[in-house]
Simulated assay, not measured.
Amino acid sequence: MNNDATQESRPVFPTLGDGPNSAPPPSRSADAAAPAIRPNNIYAPEKRRESLESRIPRGPVLCHTGKRTALSLENRCFSKRPISRPWPRHSADRRTIGCCAAWSRAYRCPGQRGQETRTGILLDTETTGLDHRKDEIIELGMVKFDYTAEGRIVGVRDTFAAFNEPSAPIPPEITAITGITDEMVAGQRIDDAAVSAFVDDAVITIAHNSGFDRKFAERYWPVFEQKAWGCSATEIDWHEHGFAGAQLGYLLNGTGFFHQAHRAVDDCHALLEVLDFVLPTTGAPALALLLKTARRPTLRVWAEQTAFELKDSLKRRGYRWNDGSDGRPKSWFIDVNESGLDDEIAFLRAEIYMREVEPSVQRLTTFTRFSRRA
């Protein structure tokens, strides 16, 4: 929390609207041959229907060992049908997201030449438990992608997936959820320098539960403390846009995908498809709405020293409990937009304290929101 003043003085997303993070792709004559389909090449003709083998990236990818190596055809998974734009969005055209980091939209996303793009990171962790202070990361997955100022994803640059051996055996319940065993992580370590290099040019990191993933990521790699963060689970009201819920499985079902894995980098690829989905309610990709929400400051209102019997009223209002073990107040709290602050204070005065009070209010930006420092 001590860093709020420092962070608030800097512009939110300094490069999201001010300039590109990568040079525009080189121009190519109309009669030139289409380049080979590779992970770092985002050219893909609209009507192209290449065979499965022709869509396999020939270059190396960052695999689970943390070393760059080529993957064979047998180890790659793809969608059930050839991919071209536009895709039908009805139930008969469901597509399956495969269980390999090499499956990437990079070889099917046409971008407009000369268009300014920014770079983002999709991140997911698998851990030995829920406590970021004592539990450990056992897998890190990331997808680096380019997007336009309008929130349209134009390509994937690279993927990162690596295991980490924890200091104690993986709990059986974690293996049951993730499929990660002690044998899979034995002797594995995540290269800190490789992580820092991978995320260095990104202007935002997005996770589907940033309140969980950011705290773990910051503990292991301080580079994430300096990044803007967005949360695709909480910074889009998915119910408002016709989805059954905010869980990744619900979102994939609503966008026409099946998901067959619970592994870090596969969840990142799944999230990429969700954020690229054009919401019927807005006519824009979900990523555009997420970026718009993430840019806005929020205010955390602390309802301290409230009567125990009022806890149900606070919970119904959306307040969450903090037990004080992390150095923050032992208190109920809620995050609201700036426009909702007066209503929240009025609620506390009328329904909780029954008197005039000035509750503690903390301002959060995309640089501090979801952080263990907030």
Rank of each mutant, 00 (worst) to 15 (best):
L52Q: 08
G19S: 03
R58T: 09
G19P: 04
K80A: 10
R105W: 08
S29V: 04
S91V: 07
K47D: 15
R10H: 08
A92F: 11
S27A: 12
C63K: 11
R68Q: 15
K67A: 13
W87T: 03
L16V: 00
D18K: 14
P11A: 15
C100R: 07
A44L: 00
R49G: 05
P11F: 10
S104L: 05
C99Q: 09
I56T: 06
D31C: 03
P20Q: 06
A30C: 06
P86H: 02
R105G: 07
P57E: 03
S72M: 04
D93L: 01
I56D: 00
G59Q: 10
R85Q: 06
G17F: 15
K47W: 04
A36H: 01
R76H: 12
S51N: 05
S22P: 00
R105T: 06
S54P: 00
N40Y: 14
K67Q: 15
A92T: 10
E74I: 05
T96V: 11
I83M: 09
I37K: 10
S72L: 10
I97V: 11
S22F: 09
R58H: 07
S27G: 09
W87E: 08
P86C: 01
N41V: 15
A101Y: 04
R81E: 13
P82V: 13
H90G: 04
P39I: 15
I56S: 02
D93C: 04
S84N: 07
K67F: 07
A106N: 12
P60D: 03
R28E: 05
A102R: 09
V61E: 02
C77H: 14
S51R: 09
I37E: 03
I83Q: 07
A92D: 14
W87C: 02
R94L: 09
L71W: 08
G98I: 01
H64E: 12
L16M: 12
S104M: 04
E74F: 08
V61N: 01
K47P: 00
N40H: 14
H90I: 06
N40M: 03
A101V: 11
A102K: 09
S79T: 15
A92R: 07
P14W: 05
N21T: 13
A102S: 15
P39S: 11
A32M: 09
E46Q: 13
P20N: 05
